[in-house]
Simulated scan of single mutants.
Amino acid sequence: MKGLFVLDIDDEIWQDTGLEDSLDGTTTDPPRWLCDDLVRSGIRVQLELDRCIEEEDCIKHERRALQNWYSEEWNILCSAYGHTDSSELRYQLQL
Rank of each mutant, 00 (worst) to 15 (best):
I76K: 12
Q46E: 04
W74Q: 11
D36A: 10
G42A: 13
I13F: 04
E55P: 00
S22Y: 01
L19S: 03
R51S: 06
G82H: 07
L77P: 00
Y70G: 00
D11A: 14
S86A: 13
L66Q: 12
A80Q: 13
E12S: 09
L23C: 02
K2T: 05
I43R: 09
G18M: 03
C78L: 15
L19F: 03
C58S: 10
E62Y: 07
E55T: 03
R64V: 00
R44T: 09
S71E: 15
K60Y: 02
D36E: 14
D29L: 12
Y81W: 13
V6M: 07
T84F: 10
L4T: 13
Y70P: 00
Q46D: 01
Q94R: 15
S22M: 02
G25I: 06
G3R: 14
D50G: 01
L66T: 10
Y70S: 12
Y91H: 13
Q15C: 01
E56H: 01
C52A: 05
L4I: 14
I76D: 05
S71G: 09
L66H: 10
W33H: 06
E72G: 13
D16F: 01
K2S: 10
I53C: 00
S71D: 11
D16Q: 13
G3W: 01
L95P: 00
V39F: 10
W33K: 03
I13N: 03
C58V: 02
Y91C: 07
Q92G: 01
L38C: 06
D57L: 04
K60H: 02
S86C: 14
L77H: 12
V6G: 02
L19V: 09
E73V: 15
R64T: 02
T84V: 11
I59D: 00
G25V: 04
R63M: 06
G42I: 01
W74C: 07
Q67M: 09
C35P: 00
I9S: 13
P30A: 15
D29N: 14
E12D: 07
G42M: 06
D36K: 13
A80M: 14
S86F: 05
G18K: 11
D50V: 01
K60R: 06
E62W: 10
G18Y: 07
L66G: 02
Q92K: 14
T17Y: 01
E62Q: 12
P30Q: 15
E72F: 06
R64H: 02
R63T: 04
P30W: 13
E55M: 05
Q94Y: 10
P31S: 12
T27I: 14
R90M: 14
F5H: 09
N75G: 08
Y70C: 08
E48S: 10
L93G: 10
L34S: 14
S87V: 10
